[in-house]
Design a protein around this nucleic acid. Structure first.
Length: 454
RNA sequence: GGAGAGAUGGCCGAGUGGUCGAAGGCGCUCCCCUGCUAAGGGAGUAUAGGCUCAAAAAGCUUAUCGAGGGUUCGAAUCCCUCUCUCUCCGCCA
């Protein structure tokens, strides 16, 4: 969420910045609502002040045993007027809030301006893609030939975009998560965290998934509130004036699309001490995404799944440190690829390609030989105060005053896609797959995946 | 799932309709006193808004005692709903 003060004072400038992201700011609507809000708020507060003054007088008079009927008569009509004004103000503010919650973050000045992902800028490249002297297979063919990957059975169990792995491949998958977690906790100073995989709407609003990206989530309805939910949806599809005040009165839970949600929301509604910064958290969790709207994309294999695992890095930092922290955090994710000896490149996303909450994002793309291209395996973002403002996540600054924190997150890394990269980059002519050195300890000394391994 | 008890500022805790944003204590900050330490004295110490203002400062003002609604001229206090915590019972990994 953007600072509404900023919108009031520098509307044109902000609208121009947002346009570089492909977001058309609703100037007219915002202007009208803001004017209405100002009038209503002034008027409402005036009435409230009058009421308070009168009530004080009445209390005063009564405590002295004096007659208060005169003052009572004066405020007799205030009630209805006030109630109406309060209701109108509340509606207007809800409408403003609704707009505010839909506005993406402002791009940082260092972010390249662009129209789509082809305008992303390569920042650096690490490693050299291996030369193969046989025709390379993709990870599905490799896994299936080894008898360790069974996608048809996963489809039988759950449907498309789910996977079933067995034996040493399942173990390798587990090993990857362990290895990443160990690296980040032992070498990069993150605190390992176990988090809920189901979160409430408030948390998702805090990190920015709600209200705008509800379709991307798996929602778990609760019978208890089903009726209430239906009602509020019918009456209030867009949080428009006249509807209920709160957009999330339901207490449904949602499967986390990333552990960024629970990790960042740790500081929601909190004022943390200056000395506790930076807070660096990591968690290895499943992630669930409905992938609505991605039909036909990456349908083969493990690249795009409804359920996948990720080791997430979250940093909660002092505002002055956040861009330094972004570089560090990106480096932490890169370390994993370096240790695994997987070639990658780092891309600075352009204005149009960044996520909703980010001011600046680096994507890390790993080399996939069969696709003959680099594919996203991590995304590291600084959100500045965008999430913190939604979450009311603050720290007590040097002057002792509460101030919004900056939040950062990044995948370190997506486990499934790392597994894909290993299968493809470390495949051998005989169909076996070599296991990167750093993972062999986690695999009980095993140095390659071979057919019919249990 | 059933029964009961609770939720007040950074913390503890008082407050059952009237000038209460909230006594008292602890903690913290500043000042005074004291050779050091300890003890003592004084002052201060929530957050988010709005308006005035070029801005800052300042002033005025509103809201907030778990959340939402209601009663009332007036609610921390009364009523309703919900959430969470604790105790007991049941069930369960």
């Amino acid at each position: 969420m953007l600072d509404i003060q900023l919108l009031r004072t520098h509307l044109d400038h902000i609208a121009r910045l947002l346009a570089t992201r492909g977001y058309a700011f609703p100037m007219a609507e915002f202007g009208a609502l803001e004017a209405e809000r100002k009038n209503l708020q002034t008027y409402t507060q005036e009435l409230q002040a009058r009421r308070n003054a009168a009530s004080r007088q009445i209390g005063n008079a009564k405590s002295k045993g004096e007659d208060a009927t005169g003052i009572l008569a004066e405020v007799a009509n205030l009630g209805d007027e006030l109630r109406q004004a309060e209701a109108q103000l509340q509606d207007t503010q809800a409408a403003l809030q609704h707009i505010l919650l839909q506005i993406p973050n402002l791009p940082h000045s260092s972010v390249p301006e662009g129209k789509n992902e082809s305008d992303n800028k390569e920042v650096r490249r690490w490693g050299t893609p291996r030369e193969f002297h046989f025709s390379v297979k993709d990870h599905v063919s490799i896994g299936e030939a080894l008898g360790l990957l069974d996608l048809p059975t996963a489809t039988k169990l759950s449907g498309a975009r789910f996977s079933l792995m067995t034996g040493s491949l399942a173990r390798l998958h587990r090993a990857l998560g362990q290895f990443m977690l160990d690296t980040h906790t032992h070498q990069h100073g993150y605190t390992e965290t176990y988090v809920p995989y189901l979160v409430n709407a408030e948390s998702l609003r805090g990190t920015g998934q709600l209200p705008k990206f509800k379709d991307d989530l798996f929602e778990i309805p609760r019978k208890k509130t089903a009726v209430v939910e239906t009602l509020s949806r019918n009456e209030d599809p867009h949080g428009a004036p006249g509807g209920p005040k709160c957009e999330y009165e339901d207490d449904d839970l949602y499967l986390i699309p990333t552990s960024e949600v629970p990790l960042a929301n740790v500081v929601r509604d909190r004022i943390v001490a200056l000395e506790s910064l930076p807070i660096k958290l990591t968690a290895h969790t499943p992630c669930f995404r409905s992938e609505a709207g991605s039909y036909g994309r990456d349908t083969r294999g493990l690249i795009r799944q409804h359920q996948f695992e990720k080791v997430e890095l979250v940093q909660i930092v002092h505002p002055q440190q956040s861009y330094k922290a972004l570089e560090e955090l990106t480096g932490h994710a890169e370390t994993i690829l370096q240790k695994l000896d997987l070639p990658y490149r780092v891309m600075a996303l352009c204005t149009a390609d960044m996520g909703f909450a980010a001011t600046k994002t680096y994507d890390i793309e790993v080399w996939l030989p069969e696709q003959n291209t680099y594919r996203e395996i991590s995304s590291c973002s600084n959100c500045e105060a965008f999430q913190a403002r939604r979450m009311q996540a603050r720290f007590r600054n040097e002057k002792g005053k509460p101030e919004l924190l900056h939040t950062l997150n990044g995948s370190g890394l997506a486990v499934g896609r790392t597994l894909v990269a290993i299968l493809e980059n470390f495949q051998n002519a005989d169909g076996s797959v070599s296991i990167p050195c750093v993972l062999q300890d986690y695999m009980g000394g095993l140095d390659r995946l071979e057919a019919s391994q249990l």
